[in-house]
Write a protein that binds this DNA or RNA. Structure first.
Lengths: 206, 206
DNA sequence: TAGAAACTAGACTACTTAGTCTCACGAATC
DNA sequence: GATTCGTGAGACTAAGTAGTCTAGTTTCTA
């Protein structure tokens, strides 16, 4: 429907405005008129691009989910000796926590959870591209460490889930209910991850 | 404003209808007309009792939160020997998980998270009466076990949080995003808790 | 039994919203 | 140079909603 270069700019402007609007309120509190006004675009252009409010919401949230999910991925763990293990795990988990624990992502998560009834597929996508993917990657890492004798992990999937929630559980769930102000500082996150990794290694170390 | 016994019945009927309505949709999708119709009560009665939609929502969610929070409380842990410890912890955590992981409470949690922007106090109350309280109680139990030499827990608060999220993290967060169908069966919950307690004891046992 | 308190039914106001339509304008294409 | 496509501005429709008001009815109490 749209090929002209100006169209892409309009599209981006709409998505940017929609992100601000939807993330600062619920699905229902946002109006298409406000998004149009905020993006400096006529209402009809908005409908030409996205069809409906649902369509705009779906495209926005899907794009945000995939964009973030892609960043979790590539992160190889280079462990040469048993002595490296605590620091290497700490680095890996810290990176994941830093990536997830941002106001923007926490608000996206709140939004998707609140709209579970209306848009269940959105929430499923977020779960798959987010926590499930992170845990799968972690499971591969743990299985590798087990194979190399650096850890004793009989059930890598289970252990990965445990490590993940040992790290993510408290901060993510606090953020859900207490808002962005509850997000810990970098120093607090660091010592939180350190404690979690220590507990994990005490249970699964060799 | 209301003393007559029939008034209490009306009030209960309204709260019951409001619970069904609010839990099966968001705050905005619910209409006062539907709540009135569902509870078999005139709209004016509804306003006489609760003042406004906000008032009704606040009273409903507060009541549900307190009611559930109260059930978490009284649950003494009777451990006589080190051999009892795994089973005793398993019983305690299983009970908490069973209490939390119900469709009704999961939906309440989704609702409150989704309305964090509009009703931040509600979410704070839910956090305090729910997870925070549970973790505080757990911390007391762990401190006691430490004092008796059955565990080695230098930071009871931190360890309690770790144990809590080791157990609650995955099922609660899956329920948030995947819906009630993802709630595991009693048997699955049992083995999940068993694995979590095993990991915890491997890290903190003496 | 009389009066007051609580209730019912439903009309009504004032407002907001998603989505459509009309018409005019500017730029790219033929 | 004419046409077409995307756009802008804004009126418009149709529907829904919170909250108020009126008028009549039931139910408890003194």
């Amino acid at each position: 429907m749209t090929i002209r270069p100006t169209s892409l700019e309009k599209r981006r402007a709409v998505l940017a405005a929609a992100e601000e609007e939807f993330l600062s309120g619920g699905y229902d509190t946002v109006s298409m008129d406000r998004i149009a006004a905020r993006s400096g675009v006529a209402k009809q252009t908005l409908y030409a691009h996205f069809g409906s409010k649902e369509g705009l919401f779906l495209q926005l949230v899907t794009a945000m989910t995939e964009e973030t999910g892609d960043r979790v991925h590539a992160d190889p763990l280079a462990v040469t000796s048993a002595g490296d293990l605590p620091d290497a795990l700490h680095r890996l988990l810290s990176r994941q926590l830093d990536l997830v624990l941002t106001p923007r992502l926490m608000q996206l998560r709140r939004l998707v959870i609140g709209e579970l009834g209306r848009f269940p597929d959105l929430a499923r996508t977020l779960a798959e591209r987010g926590p499930h993917r992170a845990i799968d990657i972690l499971a591969d890492v743990l299985a590798d460490l087990d194979a190399r004798g650096l850890l004793a992990v009989p059930h890598p999937g289970q252990a990965a889930s445990q490590l993940n929630w040992l790290v993510m559980g408290q901060p993510v769930n606090d953020a859900m209910l207490l808002g962005d102000a509850s997000i810990p500082s970098a120093a607090e996150r660091d010592s939180h991850v350190r404690a979690a990794v220590r507990t994990f290694l005490a249970a699964y170390g060799t």
